[in-house]
Simulated scan of single mutants.
Amino acid sequence: MYTGAGKMLQISDNESGYDPELFCIPKHYVEDLERVFIPHGLIMDRTERMARDITKEMGGAHIVVLCVLKGGYKFFADLLDYIKALNRNQDESLPMTIDFIRLKSYCNDQTVEEVKVIGGDDLCTLAGKNVLIVEDIVETGRTMKKLLTLLENYKPQMVKVASLLLKRTPRSSGYRPDFVGFEIPDKFVVGYALDYNEYFRDLNHICVISEKGRQKYKV
């Protein structure tokens, strides 16, 4: 791993991860994981640094933090905890309110052609506001582009995107978020609220799912 351009941790294509037996894994997932890819402690440390970067860049004005459900909820909660800690311990603070939207673009481990936007009926309150979208992972970028296009209709003053993960994939549209935790290879990862058909959200680490796990939870 190394720190690349854009203040993110880039994980190389040949990164093999770690043996799950070296970590605390829920027993019901032990046989479903190939490798631990990003341990929970590293996620938390990187999230804390992202909170500092976001506060520095967006501080000075009230922001609306928009969580993309369901996968973004854990990153969202931890990121806000770190921002709130900074607010308590610094001379300047970042006033925040929160809102939620849900997008659906996966079936099994494949993106679907149509991205479904669920919710957003009250997004008119974003007019004239500074908005921070918090997402778990950006892969092709199509889902985020759809959300950004949707938000344009409500005329916010500014919109920034913070994503825990950015996937390097030939399917990418070229879109890159403003704040990124980790740039990862083209692997399907689960854990830390990222799911495979709603499973693995209760796993602390970000892991690569095994073929046995794919078949076990396939719909």
Rank of each mutant, 00 (worst) to 15 (best):
M8Q: 14
M8Y: 00
L9I: 15
Q10C: 11
I11V: 13
S12R: 08
D13Q: 08
D13N: 13
N14E: 11
E15M: 09
S16C: 10
S16P: 08
G17H: 05
Y18L: 06
D19F: 03
D19W: 08
P20H: 08
E21Y: 09
L22Q: 15
L22N: 12
F23P: 05
F23R: 01
C24Y: 09
I25W: 04
P26C: 01
H28S: 08
H28T: 09
V30M: 13
E31F: 14
D32F: 09
R35C: 12
R35G: 05
R35M: 08
V36I: 15
F37N: 04
H40V: 09
L42S: 11
I43Q: 03
I43F: 06
T47C: 11
E48Q: 13
R49L: 11
R49W: 10
A51W: 10
A51K: 11
K56G: 10
E57P: 09
E57D: 15
E57W: 03
M58T: 05
M58R: 05
G59W: 06
G60S: 01
I63T: 07
I63Q: 04
V64E: 09
V65S: 06
L66Q: 05
C67Y: 07
V68C: 09
G71N: 00
Y73H: 12
F75Y: 13
F76R: 05
L79F: 07
L79H: 04
D81R: 15
D81Q: 13
I83D: 00
I83Y: 08
K84C: 08
A85D: 12
L86G: 00
N87A: 04
R88A: 12
N89D: 09
Q90L: 13
S93V: 00
L94H: 02
T97Y: 00
I98G: 02
D99P: 07
D99V: 10
I101M: 01
R102Y: 04
R102W: 04
S105D: 06
S105W: 00
